[in-house]
Structures are given as C-alpha cells and as structure tokens.
C-alpha cells in the first residue's frame, strides 16, 4: 500500500508539471478558440533564452526579467504580425498559422543560441526529502513540491486575473465570436496581445522548471505532447481544468505503467493518457471544466 501511495504521489506531482505547460494552451484557446501548436516551442525558446543570457554573463535575477521581457515582446510581435491579419478568418487558419509559428520559433531559438544542450541549476534539489522518507517511507522530491507550489500560485493568479477583471470577461466574448466582440467595442488586438504575452510568461515558468529537470534542449518542445490529454480532460478553456486534468493524467499514467505495464510489455504511459482522454471525450466532450456548447440548428 505504501508503494501504491508513492506511485500516486509521484504521478500527481508529475501531473503538476504537465499542467504548467497546459496553462499556456488554455490562455490562447480562451482568447482565440485556437489550439496553439507553438506553445511547446515557446517553452523551449524561453528556457534557451534564459540560459543563453546566463551564459552571456547576466546574473539569475537580471536574466529572469530580461527573458520575461523577451517573451512579452515575442507575444506582442506574434499578435501584430501573425494574428492580426487573420482576424475573422476560420479557426483552422489560425491553427495552421500556429503550426508555422512553431517551426519558426524553434529555428529562431537555435539560430540565436545554438543547438547545444545546457544544464540549468535553479538551486532546488531534485532529491528525496529525507524526513518524509524516514517518517512515511515514501520518496518525495523537494523540486516537485516547489514546482507544485509555483503552479498553485500561477493558477490562482491567472484564475483571479481572468475571472475578476474586464479583460477576462472580454476574453470569453472574443473566443466566441471575433466579429461580434469587435462590434461591441472590445479591443481584440489588445486582448490578443495581452494573452500572448501572458502565455509567453507562463512558457517561461514551464521552461525553467522543465529545463532544470531535463536540461535545456530541443526535447523541451515535446513536453507539449503531454499537455494535449490534459486539455481534453480538463477542458480547453479552463485554468482550474488544466490543473485537475494534469493531476488525473499524471496519476493515472504512472499507476497504469507500474501496475498494468509489466503485463503488456511496459512503455504504456506514452499512449495511456490519450486513451483515457478519448474515453473521456465519449462521455464528456467539453472536458471536466469546459463550457457545454449548445447550438441551435
């Protein structure tokens, strides 16, 4: 039973890391109704820019705001150059634009900073907390706990920002219908600019935590793959949904790998979350926290 709880806790903490990436997707989806294919690339770009600035001699506390500024500028530039010309275009057009954007950002990051793998040390030990091991016999990493804390702060801040502010309400209108939102005076460009800038900031947080764990390298773009089942489960437009979806995906994939994997040759956690998400789609297509859409025919 102790081992079961260890797997469960480890899975939940992994899930928090997935949620951090999923949050960026949610923000863009809320504003434009589009799945931002480039979110993984933004995570990579942010982490690589941060370590690149560190290598240039900037200290941690200078590199952090500098990278944040770069991500905000990147978000604003994307809005101005890529999205603004596509206002009122079908959502599939916007989606295709984000695919192109993804390749562009990946290439730009490697052109600016090179393709070398870098280490990133945030000063948080990724080793088991000894007192937890002694008391409960369960290994829990300090790094995972800090990541969970950061995710909690981020989610709370974003949830308040988007539910209690005018921008948050405007977001929903924009996502529903660009033209109607413009007609009632909602500044679409401004909203998109803000949301892409915030998504850039979220990508920075995710990039720093994933980069510290795995090293800063191209494979950071793949963490986005973990976010897709999280979004299906939690709902594409719900910030709390991204967190709950992440926890479900993290816990279920670890339990499945440990308890079911050995009977089927192992290596099932890569596809298990997608199967789970597909099953969920059959029952609740809008996800746990997504809006139920009823259309008049």
């Amino acid at each position: 039973m102790q081992f079961f709880f260890e797997v469960l806790i480890g899975g939940l903490l992994s899930g928090v890391m997935y949620s951090l990436v999923a949050l960026g997707f949610v923000l863009i989806y809320k504003a434009s109704g589009v799945f931002n294919f480039a979110q993984g690339s933004m995570v990579f770009f942010a982490a690589l820019t941060f370590v690149g600035l560190l290598e240039k001699g900037l200290g941690f506390w200078l590199a952090l705001p500098a990278t944040l500024a770069v991500m905000i500028v990147l978000g604003l530039v994307i809005e101005r150059i890529v999205l603004r010309p596509l206002i009122n275009q079908p959502q599939i057009t916007l989606f295709m634009a984000t695919i192109g954007l993804s390749f562009f950002i990946e290439g730009l990051a490697q052109l600016m900073w090179g393709a070398n793998v870098r280490g990133l040390e945030l000063g948080i030990q990724d080793e088991p907390l000894q007192w937890v091991s002694d008391v409960a016999g369960v290994n829990v990493s300090k790094f995972d706990l800090v990541a969970a804390g950061i995710a909690a702060v981020l989610v709370s801040t974003l949830a308040i920002f988007f539910s209690r502010t005018r921008i948050g309400r405007a977001l929903r209108a924009v996502a529903d219908d660009h033209q109607a939102a413009l007609a009632v005076g909602i500044p679409l460009q401004q909203i998109w600019g803000i949301v892409w800038a915030v998504a850039g900031a979220v990508a920075l947080v995710a990039g720093l935590l994933w980069g510290a764990r795995n090293g800063v390298q191209f494979a950071l773009t793949f963490v986005a793959l973990k976010a897709l089942p999280v979004l299906i489960l939690g709902g594409f437009e719900s910030i709390p949904g991204a967190v709950v979806g992440g926890l479900i995906v993290g816990a279920s994939e670890k339990l499945a790998e440990v308890y079911v994997g050995p009977y089927v040759g192992g290596g099932i956690e890569g596809w298990f979350p997608y199967v789970l998400a597909l099953l969920f789609l059959l029952v609740r297509p809008e996800g746990l926290f997504g809006e139920k859409i009823i259309r008049r025919i």
């Binding site: 797997v7 480890g10 950071l220 973990k226 994997g261």
Partner: peptide, 8 residues
Amino acid sequence: NDQQSQWL
C-alpha cells in the same frame, strides 16, 4: 522526458 514510473 519523464521516467518517474520506471524508476519507481
């Protein structure tokens, strides 16, 4: 990029 369950 995540091997938690393997190492458990």
